[in-house]
């Protein structure tokens, strides 16, 4: 893999953000978000790059990345399907949604389809309990789903 390097847009955005905080350490989450957006996941090389940009030890960046659930420390499919399995969704079929989606795609939760198109993960409450069951695909929420509706949705995403 080539050495990672932020796009000019990201570098500018990061520079603008520097004025917003008294130190550079608080930029670690914003920088990691930019990294995930640009590279898809946070590899060890990316951690090193972000650490260098913010003048932080790599071990610190590693500690932050692994503390949070939303940073992917391994590659994910083009579509990251995150199915809520917490209580309100469970009461409305969230468990079945995860199980059936996985069996249709012939993968287990946390795995990616062979064509690297879809990763399915079970996640905690998405704050969509009133429109349960809920699924987050990349940045977008999809609500009031059934296994059938989710299948249609996934077929439409190409």
């Amino acid at each position: 893999m080539k050495d990672p390097m932020f796009s000019d847009a990201h570098l500018q955005k990061l520079d603008a953000l520097r004025k917003r905080y008294p130190k550079s350490k608080p930029l670690v989450l914003p920088a990691l978000w930019m990294a995930q957006e640009q590279f898809g996941w946070i590899s060890p090389e990316v951690m090193k790059y972000v650490a260098g940009l913010l003048d932080l030890p790599v071990s610190h960046v590693y500690g932050v990345v692994t503390f949070y659930t939303m940073f992917n420390t391994k590659p994910v499919g083009k579509y990251h399907v995150q199915v809520c399995t917490n209580v309100s969704c469970m009461l409305r079929g969230g468990d079945r949604l995860l199980a059936e989606t996985c069996s249709r795609l012939k993968i287990r939760p946390g795995e990616t389809t062979g064509d690297e198109r879809i990763t399915v993960t079970g996640v905690e409450c998405l704050g969509s309990c009133g429109t349960a069951p809920a699924v987050q695909i990349n940045d977008d929420y999809h609500e009031n789903l059934s296994p059938e509706k989710l299948e249609t949705l996934l077929n439409e995403l190409r």
């Binding site: 670690v28 989450l29 978000w33 949070y68």
Partner: peptide
């Protein structure tokens, strides 16, 4: 300034939130 978290229920606890904002775990 709007600061984006990264997936951790505990960061809603006020002191964890401050640590997270400071760029710590």
């Amino acid at each position: 300034t709007v600061h984006k978290g990264a997936g951790a229920y505990i960061c809603g606890e006020e002191s964890a939130l401050m640590n997270s904002l400071e760029g710590e775990r």
